[in-house]
């Protein structure tokens, strides 16, 4: 038996919007720790990891570990039927091939349940060891989204370089080139508007903008984003979900050959 009640249902709607472009089908794993998902995109270039900790739910019952295969487009269709202030409850019985999403309006005058068929998904789970990164950049998520969008109108790839001067995003295409430098800026009114660079050593890596743009679908989940870079590792783009967990995206770099 599984029953997860999330008062801030809009959060789940945003989570689906954040991952459905990158991944078509995925297994949602439910355990005492929380509600999680790990999935690669179809070309095995990027990976998304989601965690919603059990403590973040108003009610969290998960009698035994359960993995539920879902088509994310279909989940998104269901969740779009929930109002933005609705309380969302996810329910499943042991051994059942369906999951139920229940939506309650804030004043309890409307209750809807949507039952969705589960599917068998052969998904590969990758081990991601903790790593020390050469540079970690924290910046406003809206700013990062803007940069990725702007640069993708010029080129297909971005070089992200971190030095003690700041973080530089560069691209080149048929019509020209573009460079955007963000300097460390801690002296802002609100901490979420700051750009903070923790650098052990300079690092420069090349990534496909298409994937980074897809990651920025998580922007509504968090005011800030952290970008962790090391020369021999995929970049980690993390959006923290307040009090609950995170959506992390991992993207393998491009190399010169």
């Amino acid at each position: 038996m599984l029953e997860l009640r999330l008062v801030q249902g809009s959060l789940l709607k945003k989570v689906l919007e954040a991952i459905k472009e990158l991944v078509t089908d995925a297994n949602f794993d439910c355990s005492a720790t929380g509600f999680s998902l790990q999935a690669m995109d179809s070309s095995h270039v990027a990976l998304v990891a989601l965690l919603l900790r059990s403590e973040g739910f108003e009610h969290y019952r998960c009698d035994r570990n359960l993995s539920m295969g879902m088509n994310l487009g279909n989940v998104s269709k269901m969740l779009r039927c929930a109002g933005s202030d609705d309380i969302i409850t996810i329910k499943a019985d042991d051994g059942s091939d369906t999951v139920t999403f229940m939506f309650e309006s804030p004043n309890q005058d409307k209750i809807a349940d949507f039952e969705m068929k589960l599917m068998d998904i052969d998904s590969e789970h990758l081990g991601i060891p903790d790593a020390e990164y050469q540079a970690i950049v924290r910046m406003p998520s809206g700013e990062f989204a803007r940069i990725c969008k702007d640069l993708s109108s010029i080129g297909d790839t971005v070089i992200i370089s971190v030095t003690k001067e700041g973080v530089k995003f560069s691209t080149a295409g048929d019509i020209g080139t573009a460079n955007i430098v963000c300097r460390q800026n801690k002296t802002v009114d609100k901490p979420e508007e700051a750009t903070v660079i923790e650098m052990q050593e300079p690092v420069s890596l090349t990534f496909a903008l298409r994937y980074l743009n897809s990651f920025t679908k998580a922007t509504p989940l968090s005011e800030t984003v952290s970008i962790s870079l090391s020369s021999d590792l995929p970049v980690v783009v993390e959006y923290k979900i307040a009090d609950m967990g995170y959506v992390r995206y991992y993207l393998a770099p491009k190399i010169e050959e």
Binding site: L126, A252, E256
Partner: peptide
Amino acid sequence: TEVQLSIKRFYHST
């Protein structure tokens, strides 16, 4: 030429 690496080059199945 640029080559796109796979995520599976870095992380392995558990």
